[in-house]
Structures are given as structure tokens and as C-alpha cells.
């Protein structure tokens, strides 16, 4: 079995990980439905280096992997904080609901 490096737990068998899809930034909450449909349904399907979500199941830890899917090599893995640094707020937060 192949190994992958988890930023929290180190090298582990692939069997301990769950794939979570491409890393794509969701549209604004009030964006056009077309934009949302694109985000929900369309994958870039890049041949080359892709940025993916991976989940280490035994520790319930999400992280991001940069993987060359042509050579099938994981180049780098890192915590999601590297990309998601800011708290996300929705402008018209329904304070009363």
C-alpha cells in the first residue's frame, strides 16, 4: 500500500485516508445560482498538479495535499489553515433566526 504524509500524524498507509475532492473556494453565499451549480457539479479534472482535500480517519483530521496525478506522486501536504486563514462571515447574517 502506498503511503501519504499527514501533517498531523506523519507517514501512514493510504487506507487510513479518505479523499475529499478538489480544493475549490465556494462562491459567495448570495452568488448567482449558475456559479453555485458550477461549484457543486463541475470538477476541473486537471491532468497535472492538483490540490485536494484528504481526511485522516483515525484522527478525524482534514488537510490539503498537492498531488501530481499524472505521476501519481503526492508533492506536499499541509494544514488547511495555510489557505483558509480568515473567518468566513455572511454579510446579511440573520441575527434573529
Amino acid at each position: 500500500m502506498k503511503l501519504m504524509h499527514c501533517p498531523l500524524n506523519g507517514w501512514r498507509n493510504f487506507g487510513e485516508f479518505v479523499y475529499g475532492g478538489e480544493v475549490t473556494l465556494p462562491p459567495a453565499h448570495d452568488a448567482d445560482p449558475k456559479e453555485w451549480a458550477d461549484w457543486v457539479f463541475m470538477e476541473d479534472n486537471t491532468a497535472g498538479v492538483v490540490r485536494e482535500w484528504w481526511f485522516h480517519s483515525p484522527s478525524s483530521y482534514w488537510f490539503i495535499a498537492e498531488r501530481d496525478n499524472v505521476r501519481d506522486v503526492v508533492l506536499r501536504t499541509y494544514p488547511p489553515e495555510e489557505i483558509f486563514q480568515e473567518r468566513v462571515d455572511f454579510s446579511s447574517e440573520g441575527a434573529s433566526q
Binding site: N13, H56, P58
Partner: peptide, 25 residues
């Protein structure tokens, strides 16, 4: 599947992993 030999996994080392296919610390 984790290497638990003492040189690699000394006293106090922790692995959050799968043991007999069960998530185990």
C-alpha cells in the same frame, strides 16, 4: 501498519491509526 519498533516509536510515542481495522490510539 505503523512501524512500532522502539527506535521508531519510543516510550511516549502516540499513533492515531488503524488497529485490526478499528480506529485506535
Amino acid at each position: 501498519g505503523v512501524d512500532l519498533r522502539e527506535a521508531q516509536f519510543p516510550r511516549g510515542a502516540i499513533a492515531q491509526t488503524s488497529v485490526a481495522r478499528l480506529n485506535t490510539i
